[in-house]
Design a protein around this nucleic acid. Structure first.
Lengths: 141, 141, 141, 141
DNA sequence: GTGGTCTAGACCACT
DNA sequence: GTGGTCTAGACCACA
């Protein structure tokens, strides 16, 4: 794991998300999981584009997004690296985004007529899974 | 409450959601809350368009969406009315949509570095609020 | 058959159905027949609009309908593709729609004074034709 | 049954059909069933409008439609009566309408993924029910 | 290039 | 008056 320049991303054609967002989400999730750690090198734009058989512009756009979010930083001539965790966002901003996310979620779910308890359970499970992954000691071969 | 043809919708120009989606979400939420009940009349296409100072076609699109989702029904020449609740989607489809919503939520939240417990609490609160509102007897002033 | 981006649709001006519905029905039927298969690309909105000499918005509306019914999916920037078959509607809803269709049919036919056996035979034939077409291996000339 | 000026029509508010069509269909069906027979008087426009609590214009439109279809005829100053069965339509025209009805039905049903046998059975049942009703000797109290 | 959204204005059927 | 359909033309994000 966390080998230099290795990411594991699935591009799903039937996904509603644009491809560049799938890349951003994929890398962000791997950072959250700890699969990618501070200082790890991300694959080159062209390399990842070839690997995923998509346009290089699309990868570049994803990388720009990651940089803007402060999750990655470019070292001139060397490539893009996972940045050290820092907090770009104020508490207020974080709260606002959490609220937005919650609102979106409730909107998406409210009309499904699924019991509240089921939703909570499923969501709790999904959140816990991430937390656990993050804290699990990884064993390299 | 639930006066004929009255809805309370906020159109936010800075919102990521398109206008017609904001209308759909707004009305859907009011139905979920019980502010709008089966048989209640929605405001006319042209009336709501004027009220929100948007184009009538945009409202019509929102109404078409609500009709397609089985939440409202048109009575020719009379207007659009809140439909009787029914189960439109298969269990399979509902599950799929719940999964998508959860995935989106986790993606939106994972990088905020907010403690898992806080997220769960806030979400639980938001979900419960809807359930409670729905069952709370409304009291007119 | 099933060439990328090829559909065969007849727009009949004298038809009671609106244009966008004719498009939806036409494509839906081609999917049912197997002429269009999962993953096949539909013609572009603008392309089909030109081909049928109608407005692009009308085609877009038809495509939105197909997407809502789960028969097609948009891949951003690439176009619309035939989606993997899935069960969108609940059994209850399917039954309701079947009942409505039967009622409509009976209403349309009851006053024609055509012997019941003839009607059944013709209908049976029409239904069987679809099933057969769907399963018949297609032979290109 | 078949008392002068009595019809039994259900106006369903949630129905997709316009009201005037529900009236036409309702009366047409009663004629097909034999509940209304040649020479029976239909209720007055105003009377039926009051009974159904709808606008008199709507009833008038339905009656005009029935007259145009040859199912009813006005006797000046006396009202509207069920006409003697006759064939306004040529064989060709009847066939064309049957085809249209079948096409519509297949379009409505093809995407429901209901087994062909089930559809045939349900349809057959619906058609047979009418035939049986029509030939059943009615017993008046 | 692709689909998606929005505006503006017209016409239709139904009540 | 009501919603539904269609046209024409514009702008956007995405690949």
């Amino acid at each position: 794991m966390s080998k230099t320049g290795t990411v594991n991303i699935q591009i799903v054609t039937g996904d509603a998300r644009p491809i560049f967002k799938q890349i951003v989400d994929g890398i962000r999730m791997q950072i959250a999981h700890g699969d990618l750690q501070t200082g790890d090198k991300l694959p080159s734009v062209r390399g990842l584009a070839m690997q995923l058989t998509i346009n290089a512009n699309t990868v570049a756009k994803a990388y720009a997004e990651l940089t803007a979010q402060g999750l990655a930083e470019a070292r001139q001539g060397l490539g893009l690296f996972v940045a050290e965790p820092r907090q770009l966002l104020s508490e207020e901003e974080k709260n606002k985004r959490l609220n937005t996310a919650i609102e979106t979620f409730v909107n998406d779910v409210v009309y499904l007529q699924i019991p509240e308890e089921d939703i909570k359970a499923r969501l709790s499970e999904a959140l816990t899974k991430i937390g656990r992954l993050k804290n699990t000691p990884k064993q390299d071969s």
